[in-house]
Measured scan of single mutants.
Amino acid sequence: MAAGGDHGSPDSYRSPLASRYASPEMCFVFSDRYKFRTWRQLWLWLAEAEQTLGLPITDEQIQEMKSNLENIDFKMAAEEEKRLRHDVMAHVHTFGHCCPKAAGIIHLGATSCYVGDNTDLIILRNALDLLLPKLARVISRLADFAKERASLPTLGFTHFQPAQLTTVGKRCCLWIQDLCMDLQNLKRVRDDLRFRGVKGTTGTQASFLQLFEGDDHKVEQLDKMVTEKAGFKRAFIITGQTYTRKVDIEVLSVLASLGASVHKICTDIRLLANLKEMEEPFEKQQIGSSAMPYKRNPMRSERCCSLARHLMTLVMDPLQTASVQWFERTLDDSANRRICLAEAFLTADTILNTLQNISEGLVVYPKVIERRIRQELPFMATENIIMAMVKAGGSRQDCHEKIRVLSQQAASVVKQEGGDNDLIERIQVDAYFSPIHSQLDHLLDPSSFTGRASQQVQRFLEEEVYPLLKPYESVMKVKAELCL
Rank of each mutant, 00 (worst) to 15 (best):
W326I: 10
A410V: 05
L131Q: 13
V92L: 07
P366T: 08
G109H: 02
F327C: 12
M312W: 05
P298R: 02
T347C: 14
K477W: 09
S253F: 12
I106W: 00
A18K: 13
I436V: 09
F208E: 02
L377K: 01
R149D: 06
H400S: 03
L124I: 10
E401M: 09
Q221I: 09
S151N: 14
P56A: 11
M278L: 14
D349P: 02
F460R: 03
A102N: 06
A322C: 13
D445H: 13
P162C: 08
A206I: 05
I369H: 04
K284R: 13
A344W: 01
H91L: 08
R33D: 11
G54A: 10
H7Q: 15
I62K: 06
F30D: 03
G54H: 11
D215V: 09
P378F: 03
L272F: 06
E464F: 06
D441E: 14
F36G: 14
R245I: 00
D398G: 14
A410W: 05
V92I: 06
E328M: 01
L406A: 11
P293T: 01
H442W: 14
A47S: 09
A480D: 14
S334N: 12
M225Q: 12
R171T: 01
H93W: 14
G169S: 04
I249L: 10
A146P: 01
N274C: 13
W43N: 04
L440P: 01
L179P: 03
A77M: 15
K477D: 08
C266F: 08
Y114S: 04
D268P: 01
Y21F: 15
A256F: 02
C173K: 00
Q356G: 12
L179C: 09
S23W: 08
P162I: 06
E50M: 07
G96L: 09
S301Q: 06
A235P: 15
L406I: 14
C180T: 11
V251Q: 08
K233Q: 08
K66C: 12
H310P: 03
Q61I: 08
R125M: 13
A163V: 02
L174A: 14
R194E: 02
S301G: 13
S412C: 12
D32I: 13
L152E: 09
G197P: 01
D223R: 01
A22G: 11
G451N: 00
K82S: 11
T330P: 01
P162R: 03
E417P: 03
Q41H: 15
A49Y: 00
E473G: 12
A127S: 12
T167P: 00
E360D: 14
S151M: 11
F282G: 13
L211F: 09
L130N: 10
F449P: 03
D223L: 05
V324F: 08
T204D: 04
V262W: 03
T38K: 07
D332K: 01
M181F: 13
V368Y: 06
I72D: 09
M278S: 04
N336F: 02
S359Y: 13
I436R: 04
K233Y: 07
G54R: 08
Q397L: 08
E279Y: 05
R245A: 00
T202W: 01
K229G: 04
T350H: 12
A453E: 03
W43V: 00
F345G: 07
N297E: 01
F95Q: 06
R338N: 00
R296Q: 12
K187F: 09
Q439F: 07
R270K: 02
D32E: 15
H159S: 03
V88Y: 00
I351V: 12
A110D: 10
L319P: 03
I269Y: 05
D191A: 09
F145L: 06
E48P: 01
V254K: 10
R374N: 06
D398M: 14
W45C: 07
C99V: 13
E220K: 08
D120I: 07
C99Y: 05
G54K: 10
M292L: 04
M312H: 05
H93E: 12
L440M: 08
S207F: 06
D192K: 09
V168T: 09
Y21I: 00
W45S: 11
L346F: 14
R196L: 14
L174D: 11
L352N: 02
I57S: 03
E425P: 08
H91P: 02
K134T: 15
T321Y: 09
V457R: 04
L468N: 14
C113P: 05
P366Q: 09
S31V: 04
E376H: 06
L84K: 11
M181C: 13
G214A: 07
G109M: 00
A344E: 03
G5V: 10
D59H: 09
I237V: 10
Q241F: 00
T202V: 08
S257C: 09
G169W: 03
P133Q: 13
A410E: 04
A206R: 02
F157V: 02
A22K: 09
T330W: 01
E383V: 03
I123F: 05
L319I: 13
D332S: 00
R83I: 12
S359K: 08
S67P: 08
P378W: 01
A411S: 09
D317R: 02
V390G: 06
H310L: 09
G240F: 06
L130V: 14
T119G: 13
L222P: 01
R337N: 00
L131W: 00
S323K: 03
R309T: 08
Q456V: 05
Q325E: 03
E473W: 13
Y114Q: 04
L130S: 13
V405Q: 09
Q375W: 05
F28P: 01
S395M: 10
P318F: 04
N68W: 08
I105D: 07
V226E: 02
C172F: 04
A344V: 03
M65W: 01
V363N: 06
R149I: 03
K101C: 11
T167Y: 00
A322P: 03
D6L: 07
E328Y: 02
I105C: 12
R374C: 06
N185Q: 12
L69T: 11
L255P: 04
I427R: 04
M225F: 10
A18W: 10
G288C: 06
Q439K: 11
V189M: 13
E48L: 06
G54C: 09
E48C: 06
T450Y: 06
H159L: 02
I358D: 07
A256Y: 03
